[in-house]
Design a protein around this nucleic acid. Structure first.
Length: 884
RNA sequence: GGGCGAUUAACUCAGCGGGAGAGUGCCACCUUCACACGGUGGAAGCCACUGGUUCAAAUCCAGUAUCGCCCACCA
């Protein structure tokens, strides 16, 4: 055993252990009679992606859950795969083409799509191999892709179903247009940022003065859109403009004549109360234009340059056009004033280009009918969010849901399965595709657009079980148990999965629980982002701290309500923790004399204590993980293993391991192995590698002896409940108090740990004296005591330091070493502290309200505490009196 | 304009009705035969502020301040 290195080396362990898991096929779920399966689908990372901190956190969370469920004996399946990521992938491939001075149009649609597949073959496995490096126990034997053959079929089936039931329709509307990506986006793919801008006040002359008014002043943040103005609107009740409603305005620069209309939408208190209306370039203006039958003039091309409708401005880029329009207005004396004005500007969530509201023909989904049952499912608890407050966010969005623009003017993606017959004008949607019109037999053409990537993502929880084809798998594994994700895709993805899942899989929700995990920020509180250079690469972290160190360090930082300000120190202490586990195990293994299995039986009070602590730990960790409280569970594990098992139990075992009695030695060895074994099981979901490596070297402690810790039984609290022992816990905590007190004396006088001490103890009763005598071995080992006297009437030896602990007076004779001034100061300080807390308690105990209304157990506890403090205080006073 | 979260030791954060906790950092001692990625001991906090509820408030409620997120078509 001693060949184990004294420092845990993750690099030497992780790969072989992972390969052994793959070889053992533990990641693949079996089926078991009468046991409910447990399934989780991974939020599919983009094929273009590489692992970032959000992935590291989210996938650790899922792996912890999944590994524990597997240990609980359920057929457990964690489905893995990637998302084809329409825009992101298309951008990558276009960049590659750009390097060869080509555009996608140069090579054509078919070749471009082939280039995307090629790109995926080359780069698509990156993120999967990174998940493996983390130790994620996904089923890699069945990897999914949102553009795979059966997945394509699922997408088309969903489209056709919605199309035929009227939920999908085509409309000419204002959508969000990204001029760089040259595609429409849905509302939630637009990110708004408040940016400083200007409010330009522009004079619009009336064609003929009315009632002495010869012009209007309109205010706008986007002056270039005036090229497309087709009316000016004022509020119907606005006295200022009452007379000019119906008048005609000569649009500056272009000279086009447009009417003044009255519309309720206008807020008379904002700006001048007169609004220029550009129906083709603003959603509100569109509505106003519709109400008043105004023309919709499109002044922008797909690349945001001005169209011929912009007259002299034709061909200018949009901001250049803005500059020119302003300059020309100013020159014409029509620019009244310019105010500073900050306002929300929409940006493309993929490339951050400023979005242009643009009028175009697109496909939409009518969401309200889909949202209703999905709202109900959360309302009645079939789907539960953790933390719960996210449910309100979900409700708010779902109850105000807008129609979803699903068409994208891209090439990479699921092509819209709609076929047009130009001959007879029929439009049909088809799952399998058609070539000729069923009505007239002419050749048909397919819609050119593809679907929003999120349209396919929403099918993930059932498409990955083979829907619409392989129904047995779906029946077995759907619905999934839990979905863990970041909050920024709550609407983009989570809500839509609930809606589509319920629609297509017999009203069943896709998952019972949704975990919205914290967002990882950097130390400065900035969002971790590669483009901002504020990110940390999880691969670097694993290099420095090992996969287990990174995982556990992340788990320590997970809390229910707070985002994570990423702390690398937590990873450092986690790496050290892995090393602690390694060395504690090494110690246990070194001290075994043979590997014969045997039942662990607690015999000494210290045994009972650690077994009781273990039982409580299993209870807390189990409950914590059930409630998705990862930070709590991690801290409990850390404290138990380090502070209780290592610092006390192992230390207290050393003397017994050196015993002459082989029976005694064997008993301790078995107990050490037992506690270590159970602790490793509890730690395994969070730290899979180090625990597995060690566990395989341990003698088996129970009849079922699987070859891997991954599939060993999870220690359930009920299995350990018989070990609970409050008496032992009380006894050992007193012992710890005594030992700590003596050690403090040693530290105070800077005594060498080697210097053995003889102490005298004055107890309060014979029973207490007996207890102390019984624990002499322990004291000797951990406080460096070579001998002691104990009695109820012990006199304080001269030149000794005093410790009051566990209600006893402990004298440590230190010939010539005691600094009485130091002693007095210390004792006085301790007395003051005790006196303060005693008076606080006494005040409380003399309060009749407290005695009458507080729970009896609390009153009893406080009484006991008060008398204990009073006892210690009396002892301290006595000591101080002697010193004085 | 709505909504949500946070404010606890130098730093990062737990605790969320009954005696202020952890990790890191800091100080002192220790190269003791599992571990210096270690051990032992220690210093360090009017739990943001102001009110309220309660026998009892870091913990519940209201308000204030500061910071941070969402959502929203006000030109």
């Amino acid at each position: 055993m001693s060949e184990l290195p004294s420092i845990y080396d993750p690099k030497a362990v992780e790969l072989p252990v992972f390969e052994s898991w793959l070889e053992g096929r533990y990641f693949e779920a079996g089926t078991a009679e009468g046991v409910r399966p447990y399934s989780v689908v991974i939020p599919p990372p983009n094929v273009t992606g590489s692992l970032h901190m959000g992935h590291a956190l989210n996938n650790t969370i899922q792996d912890v859950i999944v590994r524990r469920q597997r240990m609980l004996g359920r057929p457990t399946r964690w489905v893995v795969g990637t998302d084809h990521a329409g825009i992101a992938t298309q951008n990558k491939v276009e960049q590659k083409l750009a390097a060869e001075n080509k555009t996608r149009h140069d090579i054509g649609r078919e070749a471009f799509i082939e280039a995307c597949w090629e790109w995926r073959r080359e780069h698509g496995s990156t993120i999967i191999s990174q998940l493996k490096a983390m130790g994620c126990s996904c089923d890699y034997s069945d990897e999914w892709f949102t553009m795979g053959p059966s997945y394509q079929k699922a997408v088309r089936k969903v489209f056709v179903d919605w199309f035929e039931s009227g939920l999908i329709y085509r409309g000419n509307r204002i959508i969000n247009w990204c001029p760089r990506c040259a595609t429409a986006l849905s509302d939630i793919e637009v990110e708004h940022a408040d940016l400083p801008g200007h409010l330009w006040h522009i004079r619009y002359p009336l064609k003929k003065p009315v009632g002495g008014i010869d012009h209007l002043v309109v205010a706008t943040t986007r002056p270039e859109t005036m090229l497309g103005d087709t009316c000016v609107a004022v509020h119907p009740d606005d006295e200022r403009y009452k007379d000019i409603v119906g008048a005609t305005v000569a649009l500056p620069l272009l000279g086009r004549e447009i009417p003044v209309v009255a519309d309720e939408y206008v807020d008379p208190s904002f700006g001048t109360g007169a609004v220029k209306v550009t129906p083709a370039h603003d959603p509100n203006d569109f509505e106003i234009g519709e109400r008043h039958g105004c023309e919709k003039i499109n002044i922008m091309n797909a690349d945001a340059t001005i169209t011929e409708a912009g007259g002299a401005y034709m061909g200018l880029e949009r901001y250049e056009a803005r500059t020119r329009v302003i300059a020309d207005l100013d020159a014409a004396g029509l620019l009244v004033k310019v105010d500073e004005h900050s306002h929300a500007v929409g940006h493309c969530y993929r490339c951050h280009t400023v979005i242009e509201p643009w009028l175009s023909d697109q496909w939409f989904v009518d969401m309200k009918p889909l949202a209703a049952p999905a709202i109900e499912a959360v309302r009645d608890g079939r789907v539960a969010f953790h933390p719960k407050r996210w449910e309100n966010v979900y409700f708010h969005w779902m109850e105000n849901i807008h129609d979803w623009c699903i068409s994208r003017q891209l090439w990479w993606g699921h092509r819209i399965p709609v076929y047009y017959c130009d001959a007879c004008g029929s439009t049909v949607a088809s799952v399998d595709g058609i070539e000729v019109c069923s009505d007239c037999g002419s050749a048909v053409r397919q819609d050119e657009d593809v679907l929003d990537t999120w349209f396919s993502s929403q099918l993930w929880p059932f498409a990955v079980f083979g829907w619409p084809e392989r129904d047995e798998r779906l029946d077995y594994f759907y619905p999934t148990a839990v979905l863990s994700t970041a909050r920024d895709i709550l609407f983009l993805w989570v809500a839509r999965m609930v809606m589509s899942g319920m629609r297509f899989i017999g009203g069943q929700v896709p998952f019972d629980d949704v975990i919205i995990h914290p967002t990882v920020f950097n130390a400065e509180g900035k969002r971790m982002s590669k483009s901002l250079g504020t990110g940390v690469d999880p691969l670097d972290l694993m290099e420095d701290y090992g996969a287990d160190g990174m995982r556990f360090g992340l788990m320590l930082q997970v809390t229910g309500n707070q985002d994570i300000r990423f702390s690398e120190e937590k990873l450092l202490s986690s790496r050290n923790f892995a090393n602690k586990i390694w060395n504690a195990s090494r110690f246990v293994l070194m001290n075994l004399e043979g590997h014969e299995p045997g039942e662990a039986v607690p015999t000494t009070v210290v045994d009972h204590w650690i077994f009781s602590r273990l039982a409580k730990l299993a209870d807390r960790v189990g409950k914590g993980l059930d409630a998705y409280e990862f930070g709590e569970a991690a801290r409990d594990l850390y404290d138990f293993f380090w502070s209780e098992f290592c610092d006390w139990y192992i230390e207290l075992s050393k003397a017994r391991l050196a015993s002459d009695d082989p029976v005694e030695r064997l008993a301790v060895q078995r107990n050490l192995v037992f506690v270590l074994d159970r602790a490793l099981r509890l730690l395994h979901p969070m730290m899979p590698f180090v625990t597995e490596e060690i566990w395989r070297k341990l003698p088996r402690t129970c009849a079922d002896a699987p070859p891997s810790l991954m599939v060993a039984a999870w220690p359930e609290a009920s299995m350990l409940a018989s070990f609970l022992d409050e008496e032992a816990e009380r006894s050992v905590s007193r012992l710890i108090e005594v030992i700590t007190g003596i050690r403090a004396v040693r530290a105070r006088y800077k005594l060498s740990p080697r210097q053995e001490l003889h102490i005298e103890i004055k107890t309060g009763s014979e029973a207490e004296s007996g207890w102390v005598r019984g624990e002499f071995g322990t004291l000797a080992a951990l406080a460096g005591i070579s001998g002691f006297g104990v009695a109820t009437d012990t006199a304080k030896p001269p030149h000794s330091a005093t410790v009051i602990a566990a209600g006893m007076e402990i004298y440590v004779p230190l010939e010539g070493l005691v600094d009485f001034e130091v002693e007095e100061k210390r004792l006085a300080k301790e007395r003051d502290k005790l006196a303060a807390s005693l008076s606080q308690l006494e005040k409380k105990l003399s309060n009749e309200g407290f005695l009458a209304k507080a729970a009896p157990a609390i009153v009893a506890k406080d009484r006991a505490k008060a008398s204990e403090i009073a006892g210690s205080l009396a002892l301290l006073e006595g000591q101080l009196a002697e010193l004085a």
